[in-house]
Simulated assay, not measured.
Amino acid sequence: MLRRRALLGFWLSVLLVAGFCHCDDKSVEVVGIGECADCEQTNIKTIHAFSGLRVAIDCKVADGKFKTIGVGELDSEGKFKVKLPREIAKENGELKEECYAQLHSASSTPCPTHSGLETSKIIFKSKDNGKHTFGPAGKLAFSPITCTSAFLWPFFKYPPKVLPQLPPKPYYPPKVFPQLPPKPYYPPKVFPPLPPKPYYPPIYKKPLPPPIPIYKKPLPPPIPIYKKPPIPIYKKPLPPPIPIYKKPLLPPIPVYKKPLLPPIPVYKKPPHIPIYKPKPPIYKKPPHIPIYKPKPPIYKKPWPPIPKLPSLPKIPPIYKKPHPPFPKLPPIPKKPFFHKKPLPHLPKFPPISKIPPKVFSPP
């Protein structure tokens, strides 16, 4: 009994492991590397050139058109990893359709390849633990000028209209240092001549024999693989749509609205009228009237008489030649004045009816 239970548990565990392996048997992955063709010439770092670039895996469908089945991004080293659907790989490790890797810039536009279409073709690389690994035939080379990255895209999208001008360099007057005293004169040092170097004869080395050529067997020519043409699938045309009858809408029923009643007047209490009471008169003391006393007169010494100045001699009058008479100008002819036509009489409007005065009704 115990042996049967142990055997049953063992076979169940084997089936579970086999089921898990079968699920992961068709996991497909594309691995490759991108390469910057002229980063050193344009003085651009590879980290900046790879930022924001993406790789799309495009496969050729039966109609002859390409369809994107996977997208991945390039890391700082230019490596990428794209996962594909399991149905695209066969059991022998080949792809059902022809697929190519296409680089896209940060603005989602395809980049032109520098290495040709053959290097971007997806081929089988390896199979490990049921995991199929594919990759392009070579490195995906591109130019940062035609394939702009996320680091360079803002400059191309919003180029500066006017370059900023630097402020003028401030002028600093040259510093004047005090004159140093002249250097003292020291006589040159004379050293005795060095002894001659010892002579060592050259050591003879036997030359090595020429290398033996290694013969490599040439590879056989590739065997052409026959691919069966796809069988066209017949699709039955759909029947024409059945027209749906819509019942016409009835005219809207008029809704009777009850007229509003006049507003109910609200009674307000009349304002309080105060009763005036006369105040008793307040007695005020009459103001003090001062008594005026005349002051004694103040004596002022008279001023001395002012002496008369001698009379000045008379200056003869200056003769001025009279101006010649101003010639009379001819009279300006007056333009005849024409009366304008009188304006037509305005029509009499009817008198405006007077608005009756508003009668205040107590609340």
Rank of each mutant, 00 (worst) to 15 (best):
P202A: 09
Y234E: 05
P192F: 04
P237D: 05
P210G: 04
P173N: 12
P188N: 09
L219A: 11
K189Q: 08
P168G: 10
P213T: 01
I203V: 14
P160M: 12
L208Q: 02
F177L: 15
K205C: 10
F177I: 03
Y186P: 00
K206Y: 04
K169F: 11
P187V: 05
Y199I: 06
P174D: 12
K197R: 14
I223A: 05
K206N: 11
P229Y: 07
P237A: 11
L208K: 08
I231T: 10
P202I: 01
P187H: 09
L238P: 06
P237C: 02
P170F: 06
P188I: 05
Y186A: 12
K206R: 15
I231N: 01
I212E: 09
Y215F: 15
F177N: 02
Y215H: 12
K227G: 00
Y199A: 03
F191M: 15
I244D: 09
L194P: 06
K206H: 10
P173H: 02
K227L: 01
K175F: 14
Y226R: 11
F177T: 06
F191S: 14
P168L: 13
F177R: 00
P229S: 01
K197H: 01
K183W: 08
K189A: 07
P168Q: 08
P230D: 04
K197Y: 04
P207F: 13
Y200V: 15
Q165H: 13
Y172F: 15
Y234M: 05
P210M: 05
I203E: 08
P187R: 13
Y199P: 01
P192T: 08
P181I: 06
L238T: 03
P237H: 07
P229K: 04
K175L: 13
P198V: 02
P168N: 15
